[in-house]
Structure formats: C-alpha cells, structure tokens
Design a protein around this nucleic acid. Structure first.
Lengths: 347, 347
DNA sequence: TTGAAAGCGCTAACAT
DNA sequence: ATGTTAGCGCTTTCAA
C-alpha cells in the first residue's frame, strides 16, 4: 500500500523559503501585501513541496467553510436531480461545494440531515422539504442559520424560498383544457400536505370558476389523491379505474407531476384507451423524458436548473447580506401530443 | 435579520458544568472514562446550551473529516443518479457525508474537482471518470489518497474500482440475439475511449465468433460510434439512417445505453419502423424509464444502487485497512418487448 | 476518574 | 513589506 503522505503546510513552505509563516499565508491567499519577488519565490517553493491549502484549518479560523448543505427528498427523482445540478453549478462558480443528503421522504431523516450539516458548519442549507413537519426549518431560522426552502412557501415567516408559480400552473392547465373543449376533468393530485398539491388544485379551481361564471357551462371536475412515486400513482389510478369500470367518462386527466402522468398513460394504454384521441393527459414539471415518451406529454414546465441556481443565489445573498428573498419562477404550458383540441370550447 | 448565534463550545459547557474542557470532551465524544453522574450532568448542560460539536475543529485535530468526495459526470443522468444514491445511502450509514461535484464530461473540470476536494481534506474520493485522460487519478494514487473509480478498470494499477461485467453484458446480448434468429446486427456504440464501450463491443464479438465457428452461419455486424447523450445519439443515428436510405437492412440495433436506445426508438418510429415486429432494439443499464417506455426496452441490467454501495464500502475498506479491492458486479439481460424471437435461431 | 497543557494548520491583529 | 503572537474548537498525551 502507498502510505498516505502528510500534506505540506505553510510552516513547511515558510521554513524552506526562509520567510515567516504569516508572509507565506499572505502570499498564498492573496490577502495583504507581499513583495512581488517574495511572492514568486513562495509560490515556487509551495509548488515544489506540493502544497495544498488545508480547508479544515482555515474554516476553523475564519468560521467560513464555503460548504453548503443540500437536503433533498431523493436525488434520483429527475426533478430534484436537475435542481441539484443547478445548485451545484452555481455553487461551483462561487467557490462553494455542496454536501448532498437524501431524506427518502422521511421527516426524521430530514431532521438528522439538517443536524449533521449544522455540525459540519455549512455556511447555509438548501432544503426541499418533506413537508409533513417543518420544525427543523423553523429551528434553523430561529438559530439564524442561512437557509432556502425549495418548492414550498411559508407565507408568514421571514424565510427564503424559491418555487415555481404553481397556482398559475394549475390555472393555465385548466384554462387550456376548457378552451380546447374538455368537459370532464380528473385531477390525480398528490397528498394535500404538499404545498404544490394544494396550490395547483387552487389554480385549477380558479380557472374553472371563471369559466363557469362567464359561460354558465357545467364542467365535471373530480380530484383523487395519491402518494408520491410511479408505483403509488399506478396503484391509486388502477383502483380508481376498477371502481369506475366501464363508466370512466373523463376526457382529460391532469396529473400532479410527469411521473404520475407516465403511470396514468401506461394504465390507460393497457386498458385500451387511445391517447389523445379518447382523452387528454397533462403533467407537471416537464422532466426530460416527457418529450420522448409516447405520446409526448403536454406538461407545465419550470426551469429546474434555474430553480437550483436561484436557490443558491438567494442563499449566498442571505449569507452575505442577511437579506431575505422570496422568489416565484414563471411556468409555461408545453403543449405536446398527449392532449388535443376537442372543439366546441371557449372561443 | 436574525443574527447568527455563536455556537456553544465545549469550553462553554465546561464552565457551566464546572468540569474541565477535557472531561467534557470525553463525556460528549464517548471516548475515555467519565463517571456516570458527571456524564449525565455534562450532557444535560450541553443540551441546555444547545451545544453541537464543531466538525471543522475535530477534523483539524484528528485528520479525519468523515467527508468523501463524489465526482460524477452529470448527476441528472439516471445511471449516475442511482449510483450517487447508493453511495449516499451507505455513506450515511457509516457516518460520512458526501461532497458532490459534476464535471460535465470535461477533464479539466474533473481535475479541478479532485483538487478542491483534496483541499477540503475529504477522507477519500469516488470518481466516475471522464476517461479522456486519467492523470488526476494517477496522481491521487501516487499521493496515497484513497479513491475508487466507478465504471472503468485500470488493469495494471493497484487501484480500487467497481464496475459491471460489461464484457459479459455484450456477450449475453449478442448471444440472445443470435439465439432468437437475428442476422443483421447494428451496434450504436459510444466512443472507444470509454472502457465500457470497448469491452461491450468485445463481448459482442466474442459471442459472434463462437456462433460463427459452430454454425458456419454468416452474420452481419456493424458498429457505429456516437458521443454521449440523447441529442448526440439522435443525430448520429439520423445521419446513419439518411445515408442508408431505403437499404436499412438490420433486424436488431444494440445501443450503448438506454438513452441511446430511446433516441433510436424515437427515430425509427418517426421513420415508420415497427418495433419489435420489423427489428429489435436493445439497450444497456436498465434505467428506470426503460420499463415504462413504449415498447418496454430489452436491456442489460446492473444494480446501480449496489454499484454505489460497493464503491463506498470499497473506499471505506481502503481508508481503514489500506486494502485494494477490484469488484465486478454481475449483469442480467432483461427481456422486454423491444425484441422478439425471429425463429430459425440457434436451437 | 479528572485536569493541565500542547497543538492540528491556518488567519488576523498588531508590531516592527 | 514582513514578522510575532494569539487563538479558532477540538483531541490527545501525560500527570495528578
């Protein structure tokens, strides 16, 4: 085995170069005055010795680790994967490195994650919360530890958050469906403890109300709820289909996210439904597979990389200036082939 | 703004509890002798003061950060996403936290990533290498910094690696196609600087040779190469199709990975081919969408979460004992609906 | 069973 | 422009 070599320290560099520890420190960090030739010599010696700064030491001294904690429900979920990518990209730009922890949708894990990250003295945290409980986040706020929550809003709290405009997302989906002549809409939503689940439904109902008031037109709208994940959605929708038997009357199924939509599409195909001929399917998130699946999925898109970048920028601003930012990113309906115009809509 | 509170230190706990710093340290870390009542009192005081251990300080003193660096080409790639998940899961079990850095398939980024992680004094690194150049990894080995490479083998070097049995993967794919009566096989491979690209092709050729020797049966086998990613594969295959025009004669297209396969399926569908009626498609990796895409994709599966876990365990073993492990995980052909038996095969 | 003191590698205040 | 010194919060001898 190759024995791990001890790293050279600034002390070593000082001894070899003949300057003091302090001068070496200033030369290497670029802070403070050093004569040009001195600096050159020090840098040369440092290179010879294979010196690399020890971040653990400078972190202890300066109380800045340049580390940020990223707590996420599941990094394999394509939505979070892109958010993480955005965070990491921006963090790297700013000289930060991210500590990644998954919670597997479990609040206890989330709490543990936050605790270990605090122990590690991260400069701040970005959290996509499980949302069944938020005590851990409240505690962070109370302790004054910089943090940004992604995908949920705490309306009355002075906390940073970044999320997409989910109410508008729900609104534009419903409006689009009504405008294209759909009369029977089913919403396969996620559980309501999720912020996005609540407001997407709100947005849809808002569009529905507006439409019904202007047109005196009766629309069927039903909502069912599923736990997260392809399997759960598949099972929930399968049960629903069975209960409906032949009386399945919907001409559109809106799904809480694209993964739900994949489950719905799969089941409907298996049951002989033609999409979009017989009914339309809509998702949320526009994850990358949605454009290559069959049929390509109509969905409400958010720029997930941007979501991540904004979250990081919001965090860094909070770290540096203490200012709070609450950011809502725009959404956009991507109309693809899983929906079609059924005529006779709102002109 | 809520001012960030200074964290309580063991010194604070010592003063309040009336014991020495050292005793407090032992009580809190669990190392060394402390009387039961003393310990209880100390723990109580620590809790009152909201004490949390400062990892940056203990890392400096003990030279163990309990941090590991994970360098990955792109965390949004479903393959790597699962590998990361496996690493993170196992790391969390062992009290380690992962630092994640993307390289965007760029060697310079990989080198920078390795350098910053070394500066941060991670206890070890897990790297899915870009593979255009491996100097950075050689340097790690030479410096005696524990590391594990995922997905590539350095045959003559005493380095840790974990990969799947790609040669066998190629072999079983080709064997399966021949056994099910395919006569014209196209392989849309990745560029050959990739280890997996080379050995998958080798495995396929091996099966081909065995078959031709026993049966005196002539099989057409052609290989084309694409850069990584859906778009590149799409473009490469599109060019190929155009060049072929109407003379596209293959009854099977094997793809370097599932993402390539999605591109191929999309293009073939767009050009009116029926899958699997007219030709079979096979991928590698079995990422989660492969079972829900249309048609469900036949592919060579590896347990990616396990790949990640094994990588971490290999790393930790190397850190603790210095032993080298080279692990090759089994592969399995998942036959789904993108392939079919064309009869007249090897009985 | 507990305490005193040194020191990990770095930075920052102050002195020269 | 450079050096001296103290100290970040913890662990680790060693001594009591």
């Amino acid at each position: 085995m190759v024995k791990r070599k001890k790293f050279a320290t600034i002390k070593d560099v000082a001894e070899v170069s003949g300057f003091s520890i302090n001068t070496v420190s200033r030369a290497l960090s670029g802070r403070g005055y050093v004569k040009k030739e001195t600096k050159e010599k020090i840098l040369r010696v440092a290179a010879e010795l294979g010196y690399t700064r020890d971040c653990t030491a400078s972190a202890l001294r300066t109380r800045k680790t340049h580390l940020i904690g990223v707590v996420v429900v599941d990094n394999t979920n394509p939505f979070y994967a892109e958010v993480i990518k955005g965070i990491e990209l921006e963090a790297r730009n700013y000289g930060y490195t991210i500590l990644l922890v998954n919670t597997d949708r479990n609040y206890e894990n989330e709490e543990k994650a936050v605790n270990t990250l605090v122990q590690r003295r991260v400069d701040g945290l970005i959290i996509t919360a499980v949302q069944t409980k938020i005590d851990d986040i409240l505690r962070l706020v109370q302790q004054g530890i910089p943090n940004v929550v992604i995908g949920a809003r705490f309306e009355n709290l002075p906390t940073n958050y970044v999320c997409s405009d989910d109410e508008r997302g729900g609104y534009i989906v419903m409006k689009y469906l009504l405008d294209t002549g759909h009369k029977n809409v089913l919403f396969l939503n996620a559980q309501k403890y999720k912020y996005a689940a609540r407001v997407r439904e709100q947005g849809m109902r808002k569009a529905l109300n507006e439409y019904e008031q202007t047109l005196e037109n009766k629309i069927e709208f039903e909502v069912i709820y599923s736990n997260e994940g392809f399997e759960n959605a598949y099972e929930t929708f399968q049960m629903f289909l069975r209960r409906m038997k032949k009386e399945f009357k919907y001409d559109a199924v809106v799904c809480y996210n694209d993964i739900f939509a994949y489950a719905v599409i799969k089941l409907l195909k298996e049951n002989g439904f033609k999409i979009p001929e017989e009914l339309s399917i809509v998702g949320f998130d526009d994850i990358s597979f949605s454009s290559i699946i069959e049929p390509p999925l109509t969905t409400v898109a958010t720029d997930k990389i941007r979501l991540g970048r904004e979250a990081f920028k919001s965090l860094i601003k909070n770290i540096e200036t203490g200012s709070i930012s609450q950011i809502i990113l725009p959404v956009e309906l991507k109309v693809r082939n899983s929906t079609k115009n059924r005529g006779n809509g709102n002109p």
